[in-house]
């Protein structure tokens, strides 16, 4: 059973210089209680994919084509109000930099409290609220519980602190507490550890792992750091220039990558167990997202490119236990069938 099923998603931005195809035919499936890593370079369309799911792509961007199904419901057919009710309660998001993701003028506790009030209390008459007959007390307790669960010491005292009084790591914990406050079935985490140092990163990763195990939440973990994927995720999706290049279980993709791009990506990660190995540097750079040619997106940089690659971008071909958008995968598939 999958929580989220994205098919053939196209999100384009109309700019003065032309159409930017930020997301160009992405398929993405996230199963129940699964942590899926979405890996790619800057500008590969990872974040835009997540924003498209939430319906938060701003003009001039637009979801041009494709279907986004959450829990069997087509998200694109929902009204703004229905989508708003879903955001933050059923699907929530964790942002990269916790220092800027909180409103600086309100206390952290208040901001978490507001999430519960928005999604759970429904319309409360101002007079009722004035006399305190709402759920404020209960909500405050739940917020404090949530802060405690993510490992914030003395949460009662921190409740009334402003974001600038928190450290980066603590604030990201609070952000995570906020994102799971309504026990969502899907959390979109957009590089939540990139702004933190490595020791804090480890803590946040294990915190997430525990939350997922406790709550059964599914997570889409967006990152450019393959080592984080290795440590945390069940499945990985590699994106490049708006396309999915390869996907599959983390162990098999990382140990036996099928796509030349994934291979290059893995070889450019420094490894402490091979100190003398020279770091691999991929030739060329990410193609211009405006007026993309019809050839394989990676063809110009690919060490294994051949004639076919310059004709059309390959579709995703099944590999041993995943899929790869490469003609090499098709060829090995055909070989197997012959045998």
């Amino acid at each position: 059973m999958s929580v989220l099923n994205v098919e053939n998603l196209h999100t384009y931005f109309e700019t003065d210089r032309g159409q930017v195809r930020a997301v160009d035919g992405v398929d993405l499936e996230i199963g129940d209680g699964e942590i899926v890593g979405l890996v790619g370079e800057s500008g590969s369309g990872k974040s835009v994919t997540a924003l498209s799911v939430l319906g938060l792509v701003d003009a001039p961007g637009r979801v041009v084509e494709g279907s986004i199904e959450y829990d069997g419901r087509d998200l694109q057919s929902l009204s703004d109000a229905e989508l708003g009710a879903l955001r933050g309660s059923d699907i929530s998001m964790v942002f990269q930099d916790p220092m800027t993701a909180f409103n600086p003028t309100q206390t952290v506790g208040r901001q978490l409290h507001d999430v519960l009030r928005t999604h759970e209390s429904g319309p409360v008459h101002p007079l009722v609220r004035l006399f305190g007959f709402d759920h404020s007390k209960e909500y405050k307790k739940r917020v404090i519980d949530a802060l405690e669960r993510v490992g914030i010491p003395s949460p009662e005292e921190r409740y009334d602190d402003y974001p600038h009084e928190f450290s980066g790591g603590m604030l990201q914990r609070a952000m995570i507490a906020m994102s799971v406050l309504c026990e969502p079935s899907l959390v979109l985490a957009d590089e939540p550890t990139t702004a933190l140092d490595v020791t804090i990163e480890r803590q946040i990763l294990s915190l997430f792992r525990n939350l997922v195990d406790d709550l059964g939440t599914s997570v889409l973990w967006i990152t450019h750091d393959i080592s984080v994927v290795a440590a945390l995720c069940d499945r990985v999706v590699v994106m490049y220039a708006g396309k999915v290049m390869e996907e599959g279980p983390v162990e098999s993709v990382l140990s036996d990558p099928q796509h030349p791009y994934t291979k290059g990506l893995l070889q450019s990660v420094p490894r402490y167990d091979e100190p003398d190995r020279e770091l691999y540097v991929m030739e060329g750079s990410v193609p211009n997202p405006i007026d993309v040619p019809s050839q394989c997106r990676f063809a110009d940089r690919c060490p294994e490119a051949h004639e076919r690659c310059f004709e059309a971008h390959p579709r995703l071909y099944p590999t041993e236990d995943g899929r790869a958008a490469c003609y090499l995968a098709e060829e090995s598939l055909a070989m197997e069938e012959k045998l």
Binding site: L56, S92, F95, A101, T105, T118
Partner: peptide, 26 residues
């Protein structure tokens, strides 16, 4: 364009709340 406004939208707050509670005080 600040991130906390994006976060507020991702939390599903109604527009009036985002403007009056998130943007205007800042």
């Amino acid at each position: 364009s600040e991130q906390y406004v994006g976060a507020a939208r991702a939390m599903g707050y109604p527009d009036t709340n985002i403007v009056s509670r998130e943007i205007l005080p800042n």
